[in-house]
C-alpha cells in the first residue's frame, strides 16, 4: 500500500511538472479545419462552348493555420487545399459538362486586433490551381485545361462573441487575384498542336487586374459543441478572366460543414514529444 502510494505520488508529481511546463509557457497551436461543401456553379468556357453551363458542385477543403515563426509574432501562415467536382448543363438541358479542380493556397497574414473580440488579418497568398472541364460530345476540343497560379490579396475578419454562455466565432474571408500566370490556348488551337507538336504560342498569359478579376469570399461560424467544434460556412466565388479574345467565368455558391481542431505539433530534435505523450509509433 505504501509502495503504491509512493508510486502514485511519483506519477502525479511528474504529470504536474509537465502540466506546469505547458501552463507557464505559451505554445503556438495549429488550427486545422476540414469541411465538405455542396452548392451550385455556373461556368462559361468559350474554348468548349459559347454557352454558360449551370449545375452542382461538391468539394473537400482543408485549412491549417499557425502563428509563425514563434508565439510573439503577429504574422500567421495559412495552408489550404481543396478538391472539387461538378457537373453542369447547357441552357437547353440537352448536353452536360464535367468539371474537376484542385487548388493549393499558401498565405501570410498580419494580425491587427482593434478590439479584444475583433481580429483583422490582412496579407496575401499564393495559389496554384489545376483542373479541367470536359464535354464528351465535342470533337478535338472536348477538354479544357485549367492551370493557373496567382498572387492574391487577402483580408479576414474574426469576431468572437457569446450566446447563451457559448463562445462562438464569426469569420469573414476575402481573396482577390492581383497578378499571376494562366494557361489559355487560342480558341482554334487543338491540344494535339499544343502538346503533341509542342506549339504553346499564345497559350501562357500574364494575368493581372486587366484580364483577371474575381473574389472568393466566405462567411463562417465556429460552433463549439460538447465533443467537437463545428464549422458552418457559405462560400461565394466569382472569377472572370480573358485571353485570346475569349472571356471565361466561374461563379459558385456553396454551403459547407465540417469541424475545427486546435493541435500542438511536436517535430524534430528541438521539439521532441514529451514522455507523457504517446505516439502510435511507439
Amino acid at each position: 500500500m505504501k509502495k503504491a502510494f509512493i508510486l502514485h505520488l511519483f506519477i502525479f508529481s511528474f504529470l504536474t511538472m509537465q502540466a506546469q511546463d505547458f501552463t507557464n509557457e505559451r505554445f503556438p497551436l495549429t488550427t486545422s479545419v476540414k469541411t465538405m461543401d455542396i452548392g451550385n456553379m455556373n461556368i462559361l468556357d468559350p474554348y468548349l462552348s459559347p454557352y454558360e453551363y449551370s449545375g452542382f458542385q461538391i468539394g473537400l477543403f482543408e485549412e491549417n493555420r499557425r502563428l509563425m515563426p514563434s508565439i510573439d509574432t503577429l504574422i500567421s501562415y495559412t495552408s489550404r487545399k481543396s478538391l472539387s467536382f461538378g457537373s453542369g448543363n447547357h441552357p437547353s438541358k440537352n448536353n452536360s459538362m464535367l468539371m474537376f479542380n484542385g487548388n493549393y493556397n499558401f498565405g501570410l497574414n498580419y494580425h491587427i486586433r482593434p478590439h479584444k473580440n475583433f481580429l483583422v488579418l490582412v496579407g496575401g497568398s499564393w495559389d496554384i490551381d489545376l483542373g479541367g472541364k470536359y464535354i464528351s460530345r465535342n470533337v478535338n476540343n472536348p477538354f479544357s485545361l485549367d492551370l493557373y497560379t496567382n498572387l492574391n490579396a487577402t483580408a479576414e475578419l474574426f469576431y468572437r462573441f457569446k450566446l447563451k454562455n457559448q463562445s462562438l466565432q464569426l469569420h469573414y474571408g476575402f481573396q482577390t487575384p492581383v497578378a499571376g500566370s494562366m494557361f489559355v490556348p487560342m480558341q482554334g488551337a487543338s491540344y494535339y498542336e499544343l502538346f503533341t507538336l509542342s506549339n504553346m504560342s499564345n497559350a501562357i498569359h500574364f494575368s493581372s487586374l486587366h484580364n483577371k478579376r474575381g473574389i472568393l469570399q466566405n462567411f463562417q461560424l465556429d460552433l463549439p459543441l460538447k465533443i467537437a467544434t463545428i464549422r458552418l460556412g457559405i462560400q461565394h466565388e466569382l472569377m472572370q478572366y480573358s485571353a485570346n479574345e475569349m472571356i471565361f467565368h466561374k461563379k459558385s455558391l456553396t454551403f459547407s460543414v465540417g469541424y475545427r481542431v486546435d493541435m500542438y505539433t511536436f517535430t524534430g530534435r528541438k521539439n521532441k514529444v514529451p514522455s507523457n505523450f504517446i505516439s502510435a509509433y511507439e
Binding site: 437547353s92 438541358k93 440537352n94 470533337v139 478535338n140
Partner: peptide
C-alpha cells in the same frame, strides 16, 4: 482540316474544320 465543335442556343452541336 482538324475539326472542332461548338454549340447553338438550342443545344445542337456543330462540327467544322478549324485547323
Amino acid at each position: 482540316g482538324l475539326p472542332f465543335s461548338s454549340e447553338l442556343p438550342n443545344g445542337w452541336m456543330v462540327r467544322f474544320s478549324s485547323s
